[in-house]
């Protein structure tokens, strides 16, 4: 086989792989948009679900999901930012860096159902907390911390050393360098990581279904310790009642809304990444 044939064959394999990947996504999206669009109207978006989801809309499921990820963002962001700063500015030993990476990647690899079971055992059985959205937010936050930490750390790590040294050479101490140089430049990476994490958290069912969500009979929670409705749980339950065609249509509608919310998070992350490049990327 000569070089030109090899090159063309390699290109063809690459193109085929990319085409398979893209067409899977397009197929999935087209089905969801096609089926879901039939269910969506203003009433579907603004009304409460009735008769176990076969009638009404998903207003409280949307607000519930947004509430869950907002809570997760507030818990996850400071912890992730602190961890990324510690890794980037304070850990000098390579061994410790490797060890912290193992822990972070390990946390990232834990299956989501395990987080759900952990939340159930720890918060509900041991601490005797009610099934509540705040517990769901904490569990989702723990789940997205690795994504958040790694994005923030990479962003901070890409700041050239000369910026830190120039600030140090002016007499600033390490904390001042962190506040004046590292955080302003690394914050966009942390926000990008947070949004990517939230996009993932939005679609998670397993970690929250035992500890944070209910299927019906509630609206907005009145306190931290009340359950919420959420889109993934709603879709799960509706699809289990697939005998009713109207219910199934509503499940597709809810899926489309969920996908759109995930898209909003992902596109915001992309926008922030492009708009606010760090010093090292300029």
């Amino acid at each position: 086989m000569n070089r030109r044939v090899k090159k063309n064959l390699f290109l063809a394999v690459c193109w085929f792989s990319a085409a398979v990947c893209a067409s899977l996504l397009l197929f999935l999206l087209s089905v969801i948009v096609w089926k879901g669009a039939q269910a969506i109207n203003l009433g579907f978006l603004t009304s409460d679900s009735r008769k176990f989801g076969s009638e009404g809309g998903i207003f409280y499921q949307i607000t519930g999901s947004i509430l869950l990820i907002t809570g997760a963002a507030f818990v996850s962001f400071p912890v992730a930012l602190g961890t990324a700063l510690y890794k980037s500015e304070y850990i000098r030993s390579n061994t410790l860096q490797r060890f912290s990476n193992i822990l972070i990647y390990g946390l990232n690899g834990v299956p989501s159902i395990i987080f759900g079971i952990f939340g159930l055992i720890f918060f509900i059985n041991i601490l005797h907390v009610n099934i509540s959205w705040s517990v769901g937010s904490i569990i989702l936050a723990i789940m997205i911390i690795p994504t958040n930490v790694l994005a923030a750390y990479q962003s901070m790590n890409s700041i050239p050393k000369i910026y830190r040294e120039s600030a140090l050479a002016l007499g600033l101490d390490r904390w001042q360098v962190t506040v004046r140089v590292v955080i302003p430049q690394g914050i966009n990476g942390a926000i990008t990581g947070l949004l990517i994490g939230l996009a993932r958290a939005l679609g998670e069912t397993a970690p929250i279904m035992f500890i944070a969500t209910a299927f019906s009979g509630i609206q907005l929670p009145g306190s931290l310790f009340e359950p919420v409705l959420s889109l993934p749980t709603h879709i799960l339950v509706l699809s289990q009642q697939a005998t009713n065609s109207k219910t199934l249509e509503n499940a597709w509608g809810a899926s489309l809304i969920l996908i759109l919310l995930v898209f909003v998070c992902s596109l915001s992350a992309l926008f922030i990444r492009i708009k606010f490049k760090t010093m090292g990327q300029r």
Partner: peptide, 19 residues
Amino acid sequence: ANHLRARIGMVFQKPCVFP
């Protein structure tokens, strides 16, 4: 060391202005 660096300033090879 921070006080010392304020008294012994330094300029590097590559100009480095902050945003």
